[in-house]
């Protein structure tokens, strides 16, 4: 950079290009995307035994079963709030060490709001469904998708959309949209998945392992890409 005034002979294109490359440099230096994904992957994988051990299953002679996922309700609200706090502190401390500020409050607010939303939905379901066991019978595909949307695994993705906006990170946006598509439309998060002989706990664990693995792979990918860019 020089200190010459630009009014005389300064090339506006070059100036604008310098401005954009400086802005891009700052954004790259503020990003800790891989840490966010790593923390969320850890929370997802650690949550599997809580769901497994906290699940109550009552099967009837006609082979139908009633189940309640108490573990999800006890583990996830606290785990998500702690995860968002850890992610925010990591971003702020790292940016500060690099000589920069960073805006994390919208992500923390989005995390807290989505956590409250999912918790409220699950508490209502836990109170309503036992007295209305047929409420979900024959419900449409979109009711199942809505049920998946109100799960902690989807709420992680909704909050990640806010983080992608804050970071102006197209890579994270693409990853998050793919993640949400898998969680909402591909993985049977609210039905379980696996061979017929498996118990309900194991069948519910499979989609959670896949979700955790996706987040972990995302963390590794963003870590590798970030190192190359820096």
């Amino acid at each position: 950079m020089t200190t010459d005034p630009l009014a005389a002979g300064g090339d506006p294109r070059q100036l604008l290009s310098d401005v954009r490359s400086l802005a891009r440099r700052v954004r790259l230096d503020q990003r800790m995307t891989w840490v966010a994904l790593l923390v969320l992957a850890a929370v997802t994988l650690v949550g599997i035994p809580f769901d497994w051990l906290g699940m109550t299953v009552h099967c009837h002679p006609d082979t139908s079963c009633e189940f309640a996922r108490h573990g999800v309700l006890y583990y996830w609200p606290a785990a998500l709030l702690i995860a968002y706090a850890v992610i925010a502190v990591s971003y702020v401390r790292t940016a500060r060490a690099r000589g920069l500020g960073v805006r994390m409050l919208p992500y923390v607010i989005a995390g807290a709001v989505t956590t409250a939303l999912f918790t409220a939905a699950w508490v209502v379901a836990a109170r309503y469904l036992p007295s209305h066991p047929d409420a979900l019978d024959g419900n449409s595909y979109w009711v199942l998708v809505l049920d998946r949307l109100l799960s902690p695994w989807s709420m992680i993705g909704i909050a990640l959309l806010v983080l992608a906006r804050l970071e102006r990170n197209l890579g994270l946006l693409a990853f998050t949209l793919a993640y949400l598509a898998v969680v909402l439309f591909v993985l049977p998060m609210n039905e379980g998945w696996g061979p017929a002989g498996w118990g309900l706990q194991a069948r519910f664990a499979v989609p959670q392992y896949i979700t955790g693995a996706m987040l972990l792979l995302g963390a590794i990918g963003f870590r590798t890409a970030g190192r190359r860019q820096r």
Partner: peptide, 23 residues
């Protein structure tokens, strides 16, 4: 409208606050 000062403003705008050493 000066290259360095425009750079300072750009970085401070993106980062919200920036340390002297980074600039």
């Amino acid at each position: 409208h000066q290259r360095v000062r425009l750079g300072i403003l750009t970085i401070a705008h993106e980062a919200r606050r920036v340390e002297f050493g980074y600039l």
